[in-house]
Design a protein around this nucleic acid. Sequence first.
DNA 1: TGATATAAAGAGACCGGTCTCACAACATAT
DNA 2: ATATGTTGTGAGACCGGTCTCTTTATATCA
Lengths: 356, 356
Amino acid sequence: MEDSAHPKRSVTVADVAKAAKVSKATAARVLGGYGVVSAKITDQVMAAAAALEYRPNELARSMSTGRSGIIGVVVGDIENAFFSLAVRGISDAARLAGFNVIIANSGEELDAEKSAVDLLIGKRVDGLIVTPARCDSFDHLQHVRRAGVPLVLFDRAIPELDVDAVTGDDREAAIAATRYLTGQGHRRLAYVSAMDAEGGGLTNIGRISNSAVRERVEGFVSVLTEAGLPNPLHYVRLGATNQQQTDSVIKHLLLDSAAPTALLASDSLVGLRIFKSLQSLGLAIPRDVSMISFLDADWTSVTVPPITIVDQRVYEMGKLAGERLIARIERTPLAVERLRVSTSLVLRGSVATIGR
Amino acid sequence: MEDSAHPKRSVTVADVAKAAKVSKATAARVLGGYGVVSAKITDQVMAAAAALEYRPNELARSMSTGRSGIIGVVVGDIENAFFSLAVRGISDAARLAGFNVIIANSGEELDAEKSAVDLLIGKRVDGLIVTPARCDSFDHLQHVRRAGVPLVLFDRAIPELDVDAVTGDDREAAIAATRYLTGQGHRRLAYVSAMDAEGGGLTNIGRISNSAVRERVEGFVSVLTEAGLPNPLHYVRLGATNQQQTDSVIKHLLLDSAAPTALLASDSLVGLRIFKSLQSLGLAIPRDVSMISFLDADWTSVTVPPITIVDQRVYEMGKLAGERLIARIERTPLAVERLRVSTSLVLRGSVATIGR
DNA sequence: TGATATAAAGAGACCGGTCTCACAACATAT
DNA sequence: ATATGTTGTGAGACCGGTCTCTTTATATCA
């Protein structure tokens, strides 16, 4: 058994051709499924290929055709349920169209994102779906366009970049959630996100570099303003990137003399962290504080009480992004668009009605 | 702006060479970072490359070097937290060694697995990590070996296949969990898995085609037998593949006159389904029934009560598998091994002490 | 029966890199 | 001054497919 002998020159069309006693071109026609070949020769070649266990070298194929059949996807963090669901949607769309998916993690860091994009372009992917970590730095994405590689942004849009984007209707979602909370009598509401905050406190919404978060905060603030509540930015907190940070954020929020009565979590990871923080502070939901989280994550339906959430339909978002990209790859003439997938509020038990 | 012009012949070494007024070979040496080139020429070439925005074609590079720098991973379902965590571990190990990861989903189906493997081999991945859907059908994996592509099995082992495998110590884990349950006075224990059951009832452990599940069931049964409990296979149930099936499985189990007092869930998805089933049946944990789930999934720590789990250290498993594969790719001389990652029981609140 | 159309097969360039080998220029040894 | 070595550069084969162009064999028609 010298199976383990490593390099093992693989079987090529030339080998098959020789075995089938035909020219390389003819064997290639049979194996590649193009051109015209007589039935007899086809059989010969197929038999030879089977005997030699021929496997086409997709790399070589891609080289000459110029198409790799691969879609590159750059996400923030696959471990996050949001992205794994999205990837599923993208993969399903891709598979249906005969494409494969190669995934790269950016860890929500710009540098990692840049090198991931470079790498995928190097691998000559046929198209790219990117969740941009920051919406204010996009040279590398501009470069993708210049290279002629179709690009679709996911979850976050960059208006300055003339390119398709698939996002949730974040502003509307935030408005709906916030209105619901104010409708239940809440007057002091906090918005908590995992986004890195570069200075601690937030003074200027426009400076939030993630469009999804920015739009949600805008929606949140607009409702509060509209309701005549003072200082709507006062309870917007960023930086809940891990349990410890979140504990600290929550503690500061809730130990304030004018503590918020309701919390809006920007994603399911933040939501989970907030939930745990509240648990460890011994605060009951919704008696002591109400909360709403984005994303219908597993955990949100099995807690006591179950968590009211904004259902983002991430799978559909992913699928849509995949389909859009494939349409671009196949040169379907389409106007550049921002596709918004509508969200819906799923009422469960984590919001109390207060006052009145 | 004719940015959108699609095909856009990309800049090649030849283009750079011409611009820098050197030979293709020299430009290639600079750009590829091999061979010897004088400082002056290096600068010239680099300048030309920068001006032209040269990006190497990894495909072509792979063709001539025979290395793609890609590791292929075939998992059951990325959406499953078990796999997404594992993929993270694999990716981290890969990135550290300068490899990239391409992921394919098998949906736990043999045919999909076969074509995924074929596809990845076609893409000339440098190595393959596979979670075999069935341990009794491995022609396609044998083929991988014959093709000279390093292979590491993940989560499940196939003893007949002379190849490395990274798994949990499933038998020990099941033994520990089961012993804990019997130690708490439980005498009728059920094991529930999502594996497809081809006949409904289970009569022969050896026929379970997934080694991880089989070993867990073996461990489970061995403890029960050792404890002198009758008919240990009686409460082993497969087929909890979705909520409806699980509801039915749980209902049948618990409406029996001799209903089990404790349930062992084979993975976190099954665990979650069981939890929901119990909720909908109005049964309280652990008062009416106790449960233990595999995998420290998000949801298990925020339920009431929190769920006692078998911590599988999946990230480490993934990382180990990645490292092992890379060692193989780099021809480190190593004996073929089955690497077992130890698990531990994390006691929370979902198991009652009964009797006595 | 010879001229022409058509189908099937072969020859070889090409994709964009890597890499071997040949060769030139200059330094050092004899 | 000639032999030998070293270093930097150029020419061109090669990886394994695709694909165009040419050639050959067979069918169709006058």
